[in-house]
């Protein structure tokens, strides 16, 4: 099976800045793929390379096996939900959604019917006559989604699709997008800087750093087995151990990550490590205990109901040897 989108050694330079630097990537057809990274890491540029708004400085991009080197955005079977939605302010919602069909020359009745179907798909029945300015942020986002789906793209690109929504709406939309993707069966590629969003929605995640991909894998790959220091730092809240600390914790002299929830307090006489409690943070589902050990702060997550040490107390720590996950220094 060919991949929906492939990057072959793709770079995109802006002057001396390497926004995207020698990226290889394959996105499977029908998957929900997340590009995760801090701002300026190259994820949005990668999305724009797929839609065609940017062209690779070197390397090539294929969509369903076909090289996109000579194909402008308007001829790609790819559509985008823009971060600011980019709805046309002078058209009503129905004409916005039907725009893709209009420029293809589909006659008015057919395209209006199709637009109404899509509005119904995103639960905006009856909103067709309104102007974008009369809609809430969440409704505009749905219009942008319906508009991008009208041409039945084989790949749908979403640029920080939930960024402008408030927390509650964002969670609801996460579930909805996921359900929509399953139902339509098309490939979704979305860009986000929110690790929680990436992990909860995507089948696979690419973590970007400095124009390069630090790791590609399933959410549990990147969360439990971060390949590099950067991934461990950026995804979630793991303890990142410098080589010396890893060694004193019984591992090789390499960078490692150790999840707070994998560490337990122990009264045993020879714990794997000892630390002095410096701070406590009650989280509801448990308590996060900060300890100082070997000149480094590490965190331990104590589940609700388990005993919590006092500040200033020196406690012994232990963990399952497999929990100490070794990483590259990058």
């Amino acid at each position: 099976m060919t991949a929906a989108v492939e990057f072959h050694n793709v770079s995109r330079h802006f002057g001396t800045v390497r926004a995207v630097d020698r990226v290889d990537l394959a996105i499977d057809e029908g998957s929900f793929f997340a590009m995760l990274g801090p701002s300026g890491s190259g994820k949005t540029t990668c999305l724009r390379l797929i839609s065609g708004f940017e062209k690779p400085t070197t390397g090539s991009i294929r969509i369903f096996g076909e090289d996109m080197g000579d194909v402008p955005p308007n001829r790609r079977h790819v559509n985008t939900v823009f971060q600011d939605y980019a709805l046309f302010p002078h058209m009503n919602v129905r004409d916005n959604v039907a725009y893709g069909l209009m420029v293809k020359g589909v006659e008015r009745r057919t395209r209006h019917e199709r637009a109404e179907e899509l509005l119904s798909l995103v639960k905006l029945d009856g909103f067709g006559e309104r102007k974008p300015a009369q809609l809430s942020g969440g409704q505009r986002q749905r219009v942008a989604l319906a508009r991008a789906l009208v041409n039945e793209p084989r790949v749908l690109l979403l640029d920080e699709p939930l960024g402008a929504l408030d927390l509650k709406l964002r969670e609801a939309m996460q579930d909805e997008l996921k359900a929509l993707q399953r139902r339509l069966g098309i490939t979704f590629v979305f860009v986000t800087h929110d690790q929680g969003e990436a992990l909860s929605m995507a089948d696979r995640v690419a973590v970007f750093n400095d124009g390069r991909i630090a790791q590609v894998g399933t959410p549990s790959d990147v969360y439990d087995r971060p390949a590099t220091r950067f991934v461990a730092d950026f995804v979630g809240s793991s303890n990142v151990l410098p080589p010396d600390l890893t060694r004193s914790f019984g591992g090789p002299r390499l960078w490692a990550s150790l999840r707070p929830e994998s560490i337990r307090f122990t009264g045993a006489s020879d714990p794997k490590a000892k630390g002095r409690v410096t701070a406590l943070r009650y989280l509801g589902s448990g308590t996060r205990v900060a300890l100082e050990t070997g000149g480094q702060e590490i965190a331990v997550l104590v589940p609700a109901g388990a005993p919590v040490p006092d500040i200033g107390e020196v406690s012994g720590l232990t963990w399952d040897p497999a929990a100490l996950h070794l990483m590259e220094d990058a």
Partner: peptide, 8 residues
């Protein structure tokens, strides 16, 4: 399947 619309 096609991945690009033809030029018109």
């Amino acid at each position: 399947m096609d991945s690009a619309h033809p030029s018109r």
